[in-house]
Amino acid sequence: MTTELLNVEQLRTHFYTEKGTVTAVDDVSFTIHEGEIVGLVGESGCGKSVTSQSIMRLYDEYMVEYEGKIEFNGDNLLNYPIKKMQKIRGDAISMIFQDPLSSLNPVFTIGKQIAEPLMLHHKKSKKEAYERAVELLALTGIPSPEKRVHEYPHQLSGGMRQRAMIAVTLACEPKLLIADEPTTALDVTIQAQILNLMRDLNKKLQMGIIFITHDLGVVAELCDRVMVMYLGQIVEEADVKTLFEQPLHPYTRGLIKSIPQMTGERKSELSVIKGNVPSLTNKPKGCRFSTRCEFADEKCIEEMPPLKTHSDTKKVRCWHYEEIIAREEGGHVHASST
């Protein structure tokens, strides 16, 4: 087994808002190993971004409270003073955001934005940093990088911008890269290119990647392991293969069913999970998914299921998953009412 890079234990993230305190991440535990690509999936609003930004402690400290442990190379980041945290950010851990246009500073050149962390963390001179910036842009596959370093974000195309942002995050060769929906804002062909790039870089630089997406199709292509998140909790964790072969949690099953299938020329009818994610101020008392689950019973509504280890590689948070699978294998699966 490879070495542990990040170990998150019982993480809870509470925000102080005008409507009172809300808990956006609620008892999340997981481990990332060196060089591993782990997917974090779930519908929007499930707490994927909050989880990832909590790891880097990016929220205003007086608006947020973290509980639990975020161990990186054995140190609990939650105990770090902010100055020490700043040394980790952009150096050992860095982050790619969803929208490259809004995430790159419009008034700075691409070169400056890549050079900044190098000058800060690696004490490179301005000249060295810009030279490295050109190399990094080349590494991400941007044509004529010597020219691009002097350009501003608005002068690049969408795909190019995302590559530039990847170059920024790779500058200091992080051990852990958190990519928060890096392809959602891009069109399909560019999405595929960026995924290839991430795969290459992962092999070349041996960095661990947390890949956040709401698209299970992308996970199937890229990741080694997957964590499925629902309303602030991890409801299922598995290696990619078994997740698709045998999803355990009703929510995961719903997600897989809703992946668009290309059948011949036409997309098959999408089945979507009924209902909406409840708001953080209105969370169900028992199983978080009980308001939308077709198998929900009295127990589900009253009691929250624990995250249970099903096998070496699989964990699941559901009271009835065994019965549900058994029923299915016995061929008694009820046709979904949709």
Partner: peptide, 11 residues
């Protein structure tokens, strides 16, 4: 987002 990004770079 670009301010969040700047913070995430360790600025």
């Amino acid at each position: 987002d670009y301010i969040k990004m700047a913070r995430s770079k360790g600025m």
